[in-house]
């Protein structure tokens, strides 16, 4: 008969032999197996000090990107919140005042932008939905906290720093394939995006 593995064993209900009955040979065999593990390399990864290598396209903690001038890209359209299957994202929109052009790229911006990291399932659909290339998942991890409230990340934790050298690099995540995908016409946000470009 065909077997899936070569570890198949026929079970039988035969009487135990004498050496099996006195347990000792089996006990000694088991003990030699366990002691042989004493000096083996340990499998433990001591987390805060050591980290398991993560894939460059790992989907971890989010970042809200700024553009090259340091203005926030997010326009509070709400597509990410709509796309989110876990309903982890909420936002409150506000209108940009004159003189705030260096802070916000579009006329409308997110005054409050919150992601509940306990609800988030890190699927990356927000990233797919975003027409402004504003939200990305990064290979950073969400820190452990003592209180549930602390897992609701506001803009203070989500928006990347304004300093050029402190920006979060997402180029690994935004691969050529991703960029290509975002150009597919017919995807709703691309249509809007393209229209806006034409208007300009």
């Amino acid at each position: 008969m065909l077997t899936l593995t070569n570890r198949k064993k026929i079970v039988s209900n035969k009487e135990q032999s004498f050496s099996e009955k006195i347990y000792l040979p089996a006990v000694l065999k088991g003990m030699s197996i366990t002691i042989s593990h004493l000096f083996r390399k340990k499998a433990t990864i001591q987390y805060p000090e050591e980290e398991r290598p993560r894939s460059p396209v790992y989907r971890g903690r989010h970042v809200l990107k700024r553009d090259e001038n340091g203005a926030e890209r997010c326009t509070a359209c709400g597509l990410c919140a709509l796309a989110c299957p876990a309903e982890a994202i909420t936002m409150v929109a506000a209108e940009r005042k004159p003189g705030e052009e260096h802070l916000y790229r579009e006329e409308k911006y997110a005054k409050v932008y919150e992601i509940n990291m306990l609800r988030c399932i890190f699927c990356g659909l927000c990233e797919d939905a975003c027409p402004k290339e504003a939200i990305f998942l990064t290979d950073r991890l969400v820190d452990a906290e003592f209180w549930r409230d602390d897992f609701i990340y506001g803009k203070d934790k989500l928006v990347e720093p304004i300093e050029k050298d402190k920006r979060i690099d997402i180029s690994k995540r935004q691969t050529a394939a991703v960029l290509e995908f975002k150009k597919i016409p017919g995807l709703r946000h691309n249509v809007l995006y393209d229209k806006k470009k034409i208007d300009k």
């Binding site: 366990t34 593990h37 004493l38 340990k42 433990t44």
Partner: peptide, 9 residues
């Protein structure tokens, strides 16, 4: 150690 772990440290 017997289970290839480090234990409380």
């Amino acid at each position: 150690f017997l289970q290839d772990r480090i234990g409380p440290n």
